[in-house]
Design a binder for these strands. Structure first.
Length: 463
DNA sequence: TCTGGGGTCCTAGGACCC
DNA sequence: TCTGGGGTCCTAGGACCC
């Protein structure tokens, strides 16, 4: 027994922390508002709030000028209007513009390393050790981060970001948060606990309002307080996985990898109505519309799913979900809608609904219809008979056999006749057609070694 | 005129199966 | 004399994140 315990302890010490500050975290500052101020000079220096502008809207991003008046993310827009002065811009948001700017920044990160993990449109981790080309001393990564920030500002027309670098995702994220906006913090190896322990527990990812309240009740206010609690205490307080996670994070024991390509697990669309709805016919039409959007996104990403979930929020803000798992995966809006309507009938609409949502999960690679045709072609032109030329998708590969980790290409970016190797997040393993630089026409199957080469070539898609 | 929309992960109970 | 145990799937809800 003694031996096992000691071994586990040594193992934990071994894997807990990297030796070099090789993990970088970038967080773009007040991103949506910053893009608006960049594109509209009249907004510069003024308070800008981006988010829902309707009666039930909330703030997505407040510029630093708006934050000075108390506007905050997740606050109702009505509250932000009360706090901000006349002349504050309230904008609904232009997501295509944010996406374009984000893509430029992510591209700059990928020049640093092949291991880039976007967390959201304005945030990403980079594993600098994966490139093998960087000086990973504190001075080296500091200089690297300075250069990165300059390139981001130049390439985006002045959008700034805050960078944190450390021996783990935890420390990198903490670092990027310490000097916002336009910050740069490198946490030197060995300094982790000095930085971490004075901070409030709420700065740890995973400590939201509910966990914070429970921790405060037992006298835990700082990360240092948290580190003084035993593992069994924390498990009793927060559950098995969460408790163990808190125990480790409080000790800066974090070896989470930077994962460039997390598979999509669900696709959903939801809508809060300007006024609560009760009319069943109106609600059914809303379901049809949302199922249509979900089905379209599934088809564009060449995935389908088995579980349909209906989410509803009643007049009193109570929220519930009802789901049904189908025998086969689908991306058919009509089937999704019919399932969701049935779930709505079972759940009822008494008192009125302020929100409906339709989602699909249990996703797998698209396995019906014509994956490879130009999307403008009519459905009828598709030959789906058993004798048709091979165009189905093989079962997905395990994560360690993805043929091009990190490649970010989607079906809808492909022209007619072009086929490539991946769905949105998961692997599609058969493709054919010329490659760029121009290559021979070829067909690859799931076990073809060319699908997972040790050293992936720089294959690019046309256009 | 309180409280968006898109997600992820975890837990827990019951069904079902070997 | 107990009442088995463990794994997986399905469903519902909750916490959390940006």
């Amino acid at each position: 027994m003694m031996g096992v315990g000691t071994l586990a302890f040594l193992w934990a010490k071994e894997v807990g922390v990297r030796r070099e500050p090789s993990i970088l975290h970038l967080d773009l500052d007040a991103f949506f508002a910053a893009v608006e101020q960049r594109d509209k000079p009249s907004l510069r220096g003024r308070p800008v709030v981006v988010g829902g502008v309707g009666g039930r809207g909330v703030v997505a991003t407040a510029s630093y000028e708006a934050r000075a008046y108390g506007a905050r993310s997740a606050m109702s827009t009505a509250e932000a209007r009360r706090r901000c002065p006349a002349g504050t811009a309230f904008l609904g948001g232009r997501f295509a513009a944010y996406r374009r700017t984000s893509d430029v920044v992510m591209g700059l990160l990928r020049e640093l390393s092949p291991l880039v993990e976007p967390v959201s449109i304005d945030e990403a981790y980079v594993d600098l050790a994966a490139s093998g080309e960087h000086d990973l001393s504190v001075d080296g990564v500091t200089a690297l981060a300075r250069g990165l920030k300059e390139r981001i500002a130049a390439a985006t027309g002045g959008v700034t970001g805050s960078v944190g670098i450390g021996t783990s995702k935890l420390m990198a994220k903490i670092g990027s948060d310490l000097q916002k906006p336009d910050g740069l913090v490198v946490v030197a190896p060995g300094q982790e606990l000095e930085v971490l322990h004075p901070l409030p527990v709420t700065r740890l990812g995973g400590v939201g309002p509910a966990t914070a309240e429970r921790l405060h009740q037992v006298g835990v206010k700082t990360v240092g307080d948290l580190a003084a609690r035993s593992l069994p205490d924390l498990v009793a307080l927060a559950g098995r996985a969460h408790g163990a996670g808190l125990h480790a994070l409080a000790r800066a024991d974090d070896d989470r990898a930077v994962v460039p390509d997390r598979g999509v697990k669900s696709v959903s669309h939801e809508e809060t109505f300007e006024r609560d709805l009760t009319d069943v016919d109106v609600l059914a039409r809303e379901i049809d519309s949302m199922a249509g959007r979900v089905g379209e996104r599934l088809r564009k990403s060449a995935i389908s799913g088995r579980t349909v979930t209906l989410k509803l929020r009643r007049y009193d803000f109570t929220t519930l979900t009802r789901s049904q798992t189908l025998p086969q995966p689908t991306d058919d809006a009509r089937l999704i809608a019919a399932t969701a309507r049935r779930l709505l009938t079972e759940a009822g609409t008494a008192g009125g609904l302020r929100l409906l949502g339709v989602g699909v999960s249990g996703l797998s690679v698209y396995a019906q219809g014509d994956l490879f045709a130009d999307s403008d072609e009519p459905e009828e032109a598709t030959d789906t008979s058993p004798d048709a030329p091979a165009r189905t998708v093989e079962p997905e590969l395990p994560a360690d056999k993805r043929w091009w980790p990190g490649q970010d290409v989607r079906h809808d970016q492909l022209g007619a006749g072009w086929v490539w190797g991946r769905g949105l997040g998961r692997v599609t393993v058969r493709f054919e057609g010329p490659l760029t630089p121009p290559g021979p026409v070829r067909t690859l199957t799931a076990d073809d070694p060319a699908l997972h080469p040790a050293d992936p070539p720089d294959w690019r898609l046309p256009g």
